[in-house]
Nucleic acid binder design. Structure first.
Lengths: 233, 233
DNA sequence: TCGCGAATCTAACGAATTGTAACAAGCAAC
DNA sequence: GTTGCTTGTTACAATTCGTTAGATTCGCGA
């Protein structure tokens, strides 16, 4: 996939440059404009993914522009403005802006907010649905474990929760308490073997040798460690 | 369609109340929680549209919660935090939050930002008659499912209701209660298997493999998730 | 090294949940 | 009435998942 395109519309040169630098450094394509008319002309031939718009423009009212942008183009619009009143923010957002950043701003935050917009706009974050590790591929979207030979094993939702927890923190101790907490969250502590059973079932599905588990290792008195070379995506 | 559901997770009673009032006034359904565990328990059977989360929770790390929320549930997450450092905001956003509001805040702005999230999240524009997903095209005006090969299968009104519900909220948990509510609206009693039967019939029409359905997944004890890349129009 | 209590493993059980085939009621068209 | 279709209900099969209980393993001190 190509780089997302971010446009910058601000009449101050210094701000345009700062944003351009930060965004390109972050891996985005950028186009910047000093006046609304230029920007609108460019819109006829390009479809930006995110538009940063300063409201105080010399040649046009920023708010109506935002309104049109949000409505007609499908792009995400982030207002950047020196006007810090709550009322300004509210009307900006109500008119269709997706976010409202107040000057002066930190470029890093702008980048983070741009990313947040893109994340929602582009669905299918495949990255969190599949993980490969030691001859296995876990498909969380299909609740399936696939062997390197191609044979498939289904796993249940509860098993998936455990597996995901492991795959998200490989080679690190996951304490029992920690696990209870992130999973079922069941109150019971003392005689609650549910966790063990879940892990046991997961182990069988992974074809672990009970005597010598290679992937899910028990740390007596502490918790578990998942030893696997995990790569997501 | 029914009111969007907004959840509030904050340990301060006063803040919860303030937000609840503002949001309900604005026409949203709300649910508020003082601790993360309660919230997570509720998540098993409800799918909020927007989650407001305070990071400083007594019983849990808010950031990992946000991460999981954003990833697993499809909901929009707005962090509300007293931590105003740029770095905090950046990490919060990078972890999957859609917005980051700093305390103290103005309720009106929170409402505006919640609205902004919903606007993007819920597409559902004009053409609600056709949807494409994973090799199928559903024509709600003709009550027809069309395969990519062109072969057609008719579906009934009741099946269409379920299918539409799924297609409107793909990749998100749809709880049983939620489904009863939006569909038949019947008094919804405990021994009402009609829902299951509808889904079963829909599954066969979609040619799902009973052993491992690819599109309509059951989450034991919670509800269903439709895993498909849906595009309307 | 041996023994013991605590921690963990796991087979087996069973309650709750979900799937679905079969039946029946309702209804429209003929 | 008969036929055909939709849809809820019933009954039973299948699955999920926590609990139980006995076996096994671990850490540690004698």
């Amino acid at each position: 996939m190509s780089k997302p395109l971010v446009t910058i519309l601000d009449d101050e040169r210094a701000i345009r440059d700062m944003l351009t630098d930060a965004l390109e450094e972050a891996g985005f394509e950028t186009l910047s404009f000093g006046r609304a008319t230029e920007f609108e002309a460019a819109l006829k031939t390009t479809a930006p993914d995110v538009c940063l718009v300063d409201l105080s423009l010399p040649d046009k009212d920023g708010l109506t522009l935002v309104h049109r942008l949000a409505l007609e183009q499908g792009a995400s619009v982030i207002i950047i403005s020196g006007r810090a009143q709550v009322q300004d923010r509210v009307t900006g957002l109500e008119l269709g802006a997706d976010d409202y950043i107040i000057k002066p701003f930190e470029p890093a935050e702008v980048v983070a907010r741009v990313r947040a917009r893109l994340r929602k706009a582009a669905p299918a974050p495949q990255s969190t649905e599949t993980a490969r590790f030691n001859g296995w591929t876990a498909h969380f979207d299909r609740y399936m474990l696939v062997d390197d030979t191609g044979s498939e094993t289904a796993f249940s939702h509860a098993e998936g929760e455990v597996l995901r927890l492991f795959l998200e923190r490989p080679k690190r101790l996951i304490s029992r308490a920690n696990m209870q907490e992130t999973l079922g969250g069941a109150a019971g502590e003392s005689f609650d073997r549910a966790m063990d059973v879940r892990i046991s079932r997961l182990r069988t599905k992974l074809g672990e040798d009970p005597k010598n588990p290679r992937l899910i290792k028990t740390i007596y008195g502490a918790g578990y460690v998942f030893l696997g070379d995990v790569s997501w995506g």
